[in-house]
């Protein structure tokens, strides 16, 4: 699979060692020097138990997500065996979590039109500070696992503020099959 940006701009994510599901320690965050103080955040999650991450991996949605407006802060967590998926765990609600994927890995042609106003609303001045992820809807049947390409999550990697954009582009909908994309890419 090709490793295309924009997600490469995202700070190094916490890599959880699943051997110790109850207590996890994460290597020091070595990205932005302003955040290099060992400033950690600990929260509870129904699946992983107590999770500690660097503050630099906390993603804030000032307006929440549609349907989840009251949950604004999430921890970005990467589990090695789950690559390329990333967990988005709500800090204030142990049972609320999402799964993200970098759409460019599966849909290299994906070309969301993130308008200037949308970038402004996130305070993004330069394109390299934008990272785009899509929410995955899981299913016990791999063929039924889909990604929402209509509502990409846009992240300002400098401030770690995020927003779910709603595209006008009719080419994209909320349920693109991941396995189909994967087999086409091969």
């Amino acid at each position: 699979m090709s490793d295309l940006s924009p997600s490469s701009a995202l700070p190094a994510l916490n890599n959880l060692d699943e051997c110790e599901p109850k207590k996890m320690t994460i290597a020091a965050y070595s990205g932005d020097p302003r955040m290099s103080e060992s400033d950690k955040v600990t929260f509870q999650n129904a699946k992983f138990g107590e999770v500690t991450i660097e503050r630099g991996n906390v993603l804030s949605f000032p307006y929440g997500l549609p349907g989840f407006e009251r949950h604004r802060d999430y921890g970005l967590v990467e589990v090695e065996e789950e690559v390329p998926f990333i967990r988005l765990l709500a800090l204030n609600e142990p049972r609320l979590a999402f799964v993200l994927v970098n759409p460019m890995l599966l849909w290299p042609e994906y070309d969301p039109d993130i308008g200037q106003e949308a970038l402004q609303s996130l305070g993004i001045g330069q394109p390299e500070h934008l990272a785009v992820y899509c929410i995955v809807t899981l299913s016990s049947e791999p063929g039924q696992v889909t990604a929402n390409l209509r509502g990409p999550i846009c992240i300002n990697t400098e401030t770690m503020q995020a927003k779910q954009m709603i595209l006008v582009d009719e080419r994209y909908h909320t349920r693109h099959s991941i396995m189909e994309a994967s087999s086409q890419e091969a």
Partner: peptide
């Protein structure tokens, strides 16, 4: 907007599932 909200709600329900098998399949 409603479609996005509905999909977010569906996505949140499957959150705690295992991802390892899917990662392998991919």
């Amino acid at each position: 907007y409603e479609r996005i909200r509905e999909e977010n709600e569906r996505a949140a329900q499957g959150d705690q599932q295992e991802l390892r098998a899917l990662s392998q399949a991919l």
